[in-house]
């Protein structure tokens, strides 16, 4: 088994004339937490959208777990073992915590028409199993939430929603988790709590790799093993947080001075 889990090779994506990604090369190793940083519009979220199959890249390849997944489509990418959260929380606010988490488990339950409509006993067993699984996962973040599995998500504060989003992404036991600005819309304290949560998740699921997009440098410093800095769709620097923080080119990209 190769040490590299995810690899971009010359990845490019243009919208009209705008090059959001411009030949990006990047590697994510198994079990590491990689921070993806860069100024606004540097292509961070676009790279997530290309990996997860929302966009097809204009050119370049994405390899995951020894397999070429370029242009595979969102559903297939998910089945290959990549799950994500979104910059703006995209939970289904009218649905319960349980429902939201189970959406993430969709590929692992029986979706047959006959099974769902006619096999009451089988479905009941799956619901019980799913409930146990979802509850355990949620309990890992907050015991209080786990007691309210059938409460609608819309009534919860931001940090709880983020946690549920992460549970939804984790419930299918992915190999790679993509977190798109998990601290967005949260207070300082909440962000700190969420960082603990993420580290705890990593400890529980030893071989899980995480790529995290973040503007809060405190989060990057504390969580990541390795960082990649993007600017105008290209990689301009990589290394440990300390290394990239000292890189003059990174400072230029952020501050916009030549």
């Amino acid at each position: 088994m190769s040490e590299v889990l995810l690899e971009f090779e010359g990845l490019a994506k243009s919208f009209g004339g705008v090059r959001a990604l411009d030949g990006l090369d990047m590697r994510v190793k198994r079990g590491e937490i990689l921070g993806l940083i860069g100024p606004n519009g540097s292509g961070k979220t676009t790279s997530f959208n290309v990996v997860t199959g929302i966009y097809t890249p204009t050119s370049g390849r994405v390899r995951f777990d020894g397999r070429d997944i370029t242009g595979l489509g969102a559903r297939k990418v998910y089945e290959a073992g990549i799950a994500r959260t979104f910059q703006r929380s995209r939970l289904c606010l009218d649905l319960s915590i349980f429902d939201n988490v189970m959406i993430g488990n969709h590929a692992r339950v029986n979706n047959g028409l006959w099974f769902n409509l006619m096999n009451r006993r089988g479905l009941r067993r799956e619901v019980e199993d799913g409930y146990a699984r979802a509850r355990e996962l949620v309990a890992g973040f907050s015991a209080d939430l786990a007691d309210r599995m059938f409460a609608p998500v819309g009534a919860l504060p931001m940090i709880e929603r983020r946690r549920i989003e992460i549970c939804r992404a984790l419930v299918s036991a992915p190999k790679l988790l993509l977190l798109d600005e998990p601290s967005a819309g949260m207070t300082h304290d909440e962000t700190a709590q969420l960082m603990d949560d993420i580290l705890a998740v990593r400890d529980r699921m030893g071989d899980l790799s995480i790529v995290i997009i973040e503007h809060e440098m405190g989060v990057i410093e504390r969580l990541t093993d390795h960082c990649v800095v993007l600017s105008y769709g290209r990689k301009i620097s990589e290394g440990s947080y300390a290394a990239i923080a000292a890189d003059p080119e990174v400072q230029t990209a952020y501050l916009g001075v030549d």
């Binding site: 199959g53 929302i54 969102a74 799950a83 994500r84 979104f86 649905l95 959406i103 969709h106």
Partner: peptide
């Protein structure tokens, strides 16, 4: 339900 509420996210979760 998931398709109604968010098609893109649904696809990202294997639906």
């Amino acid at each position: 339900d998931s398709v109604r509420l968010d098609e893109t996210a649904s696809a990202c979760f294997g639906i």
